[in-house]
Design a protein around this nucleic acid. Structure first.
Lengths: 115, 115
DNA sequence: TTCCTTGTCAACCGTTCGGTTAAATACGAG
DNA sequence: CTCGTATTTAACCGAACGGTTGACAAGGAA
């Protein structure tokens, strides 16, 4: 039923509104109204986004009177970063191959110019 | 209509089957049948997953007779990695705070033991 | 208590998602 | 041309998504 943590995180990050909320939370805790302000969607919609982020472990929430401040939970992103890091060697390799290719093309061009 | 590239990538990565396909493609190009083999889902389902990955730029596809080999396009992951990297300082910071906390707890415990 | 603000819950709506089966397509082999 | 293999397309289905509106709960202030 409930998806694995990594899938939850990727799915949470797949929405630009939620990514913007995370970016805003880098500046510190914020209430739902503060978080909703930049968007022209309803408050309940923002509330739902926050629930998604919380289930993914990307934020946590406190209570301060009638406010429910949200704060970034950045360790959750570390797991995502580590998953992606496994692929770093492949894109580094791609870059190496691109360099090789460009070197060859340049060489061919020089040869052509010499002929 | 069509989502931004980053959203497409995160959404593509949110499915465990698709992540497994990417992992398999690290070992080299593969046909649809080869990619489908580990899963007990239909071939059209795999074909759809490949289309999602392709639209996200995470793979590209060739043609070899009736085969449509898929290969990893790892540079696409670089963009995702860079987005996440922006948050590294936050989780590094969290880790520092955790270390501080553990140091304090340990100190308190030592004091307690000495009393 | 009453009022106001903050936030969530419930019900609903249209779209997208991940899957299916059945039919169509692309291509090499005989 | 016909057959077989590989893959995609089309149509469909149920569940989840992202949004709405309207009612409700929690808590400080008059």
């Amino acid at each position: 039923m409930s998806a694995d943590p990594l899938s939850l995180k990727f799915a949470a990050l797949a929405d630009p509104t939620r990514r913007a909320i995370l970016a805003r939370l880098c500046e510190g805790e914020a209430s739902v109204n503060e978080l909703a302000e930049p968007f022209d969607i309803s408050l309940p919609a923002v509330s739902k986004h926050l629930k998604v982020l919380e289930k993914a472990g990307l934020i946590s929430r406190g209570r301060d009177a009638q406010w429910r401040p949200a704060r970034l939970e950045p360790m959750a992103l570390k797991g995502v970063a580590e998953w992606i890091e496994h692929y770093r060697r492949y894109w580094d390799q791609s870059f190496d191959r691109l360099e090789d290719y460009l070197r060859k093309v340049q060489k061919g061009k020089d040869d052509g110019e010499r002929n």
